[in-house]
Design a protein around this nucleic acid. Sequence first.
DNA 1: AGAGAATACATCGAAGTCGAGGTATTGCGG
DNA 2: CCGCAATACCTCGACTTCGATGTATTCTCT
Lengths: 177, 177
Amino acid sequence: MLELAILGFLYDAPLHGYELRKRITALTGHVKPVAESTLYPAIKRLEKAELLERATRPGSVAAPRHELTLTEEGRRELRRRLAEPSRSDITDENRWFTVLAFLRHLEDPGAQATVLRRRLAFLEEPASFFYDGDRPLRAEEFDDPFRRGILTIARATSEAELAWLRETVASLDTGSR
Amino acid sequence: MLELAILGFLYDAPLHGYELRKRITALTGHVKPVAESTLYPAIKRLEKAELLERATRPGSVAAPRHELTLTEEGRRELRRRLAEPSRSDITDENRWFTVLAFLRHLEDPGAQATVLRRRLAFLEEPASFFYDGDRPLRAEEFDDPFRRGILTIARATSEAELAWLRETVASLDTGSR
DNA sequence: AGAGAATACATCGAAGTCGAGGTATTGCGG
DNA sequence: CCGCAATACCTCGACTTCGATGTATTCTCT
């Protein structure tokens, strides 16, 4: 997820680590903050894998910056990760939002629709949170207001997203015809 | 989150690891699966911390089971973790749902309402995903349908949850008066 | 002039998590 | 009776992540 976000933000324009961190914090930080000690090693991993290059520039304000630029290989890698997201990129909301944030970099509307359809399939799978044996329990069956809340919220979320997904998939399909 | 789920499920009744895994998988597994190699070490940690005890029972079907029971200290620890959730228990949806799933074990409605109010405060904080400098960008301002989707979905989710939270806090307040 | 915040990067050890693999038993279909 | 799925537990190494801490510079406020 972190690596995807780094590749995604750098796809548009070269940035230095500190700026990257601010953008990532805005994107997913209020839910799950990114520590600097996680970001810098991640940048190094990507550099080692030759997905990005760094150039030292005098800092505009303070210490010198390391301007990070994606290599051609790095650009291909982002498109690959967007076109073929892992299972958890689809199921985990944080990861999924990161995929969505950069999905426009996948230029083909058909490929974009394919990714949305995978999320759609996942959301359409019947899944509950609590079971009585094999039988999924519905919100109305709980005395517990908090468990009822979980199901209520999950249902509202999933309906909003399903509506958006269906609409967007349809418009990608007609747009590309 | 894992430890909270273990403590939560065992609070109701003693279970063995395999059964625990199935319940945790039902609760959060479709979003983020729990590997056995994560669960068993977690059980050992809790055992070492004397929050739970194990007793070997002949397996009903196959191998012998290790029946796990919370100690008095373990029960206190669950209540403590529910009453004083960490920042990320409040902000991270997976963790938050886990807190909600067991919040009924906090017997005092006032304490329950306090926890809900912390989530309420978090959701009421103004937070966007994308910024133009310091100015948060609204859904309508994007050409990108995917980023627009992120904001649309996040808004719907947050509104559904806010409504539920306000209603539930109110009923906890009147109920305890 | 000095304190403190912001910029900008980095290392280290501790901890948690995962995937792959291993052990052993029971029950069911072919 | 053989293989396979399900039950039930476990270990190992690789990797990621985090919190704490360190370095150095510049700007702002007092």
